[in-house]
Write a protein that binds this DNA or RNA. Structure first.
Lengths: 213, 213
DNA sequence: ATGATTTTCGGCACTCAGTGACGAATGGCA
DNA sequence: TGCCATTCGTCACTGAGTGCCGAAAATCAT
């Protein structure tokens, strides 16, 4: 979060950076919330971080990418968690544990997380930018399933599991960001358990919603 | 497909259209295949249809929207099929039947379908444009699940089912467009059955792929 | 047939995202 | 002080998408 100052090796060679990816993200998040995504120009984001427009595009490939930093690191967390998972654990159970472990946010980070997720699911242009990032998540799951089931990664079932797991998690995210009456992890757990149970009618009709208990 | 000429009420009031959404789609599909999506400008698509750039944007809101015509009508098909489904059928079973019924393409349309799907899953910019169209599909499923389970549409389980079903179908689409060794419906059926079975380890490891039989 | 009405089209001008090129700025190092 | 590495800013350019307005092409009424 604020590890930009300390994480410097202290002796770098060239001109020091005038900003950071994180600083641009914070500025963008604030401006998007104040005036909307489409109404905010890249010039404004760059100016808020005290840097030029061209420099913004050296940190991010596109205007919408500025909100996907933390998500991408979360994918890496899941990938490494799955790599260390014991071989006797059922596939979906291993995936569920890894996803839950990667989504434990400290209370201080929750408000920002909520604002970011609300933007990502509300603004169509931002929702569109999700595709490439979701792809990385799905591949992390699919690769694990393929290893465990001894199938090539491009075959049907690994693909299904990867995408279905992401779909369940996105449903939990949306449900949580729309109305935060319980911990995010509770929703993720309920969604993934329903998926593993086969989405049968009795599971679906059981409780209106997994309210906190 | 070619119902543009006949479907005219014969006496319309103003200047007749110089092209059609379908004609623009065909021109775009050809150009995208020849030179790539990003390398094709809207000017070229419009010129190929004998119309101006400005007119293209009267038929489609964005360059990428030009390939989503048939998908959107398919969503409407699924929606109406689910509306007529008998009440005693299990939810996932009803969804599976509706999806399979909506995906019966005639042999003549298959080559174009394949080219379009390959583009949509290959070009990142086109994959990004999928979000809003997928959203409509998911809502069609979620609304049905919500009705059947007596829950509000925004609650967790309808969301999960809607997204998970789409996820399974997308996996089948990709698997099929990458290597067409079986009918599309076979892959869709296998993916949806696996989802309903709970994605357990024995299901996933059963057969490498549901090759045609 | 002529004019009014209706609908689509074309051209123009504009904003903004994204990219490539190039030189200037700013630090460490010999 | 000179050399090198890295980041930054400026400029110029392409292309997507939008608003505006007048022209074109058809039907309808008189």
């Amino acid at each position: 979060m604020t590890d930009d100052v300390l994480a410097r090796p202290a002796n770098r060679r060239g001109r020091p950076p005038g900003t950071s990816a994180r600083e641009l993200e914070v500025a963008a998040l604030r401006l998007f919330g104040e005036q909307g995504f489409h109404e905010t120009t890249v010039d404004q984001i760059a100016a808020a971080a005290g840097v030029s427009r061209r420099t913004f595009f050296r940190y991010y490939d596109a205007k919408a990418d500025v909100l996907w930093n933390e998500f991408d690191t979360e994918v890496e967390t899941i990938r490494s968690l799955l790599a260390e998972t014991p071989a006797d654990l059922p596939v979906l159970e291993a995936v569920r544990r890894a996803v839950l472990a990667a989504n434990h946010y400290s209370a201080a980070d929750v408000p920002e997380l909520r604002r970011r997720m609300t933007l990502l699911s509300t603004v169509p242009e931002l929702a569109a930018s999700a595709a490439v990032h979701y792809d990385a998540w799905e591949r992390a799951i699919s690769a694990f399933v393929a290893r465990r089931s001894g199938q090539p990664e491009e075959s049907l079932y690994p693909l299904v599991v990867g995408r279905a797991v992401l779909a369940a998690c996105r449903a939990a995210y949306d449900r949580w960001s729309a109305r935060a009456d319980a911990d995010l992890v509770v929703y993720l757990d309920a969604a993934l358990r329903a998926l593993a149970a086969g989405l049968t009618d009795d599971v679906l009709g059981a409780e209106p919603d997994p309210v906190a208990e």
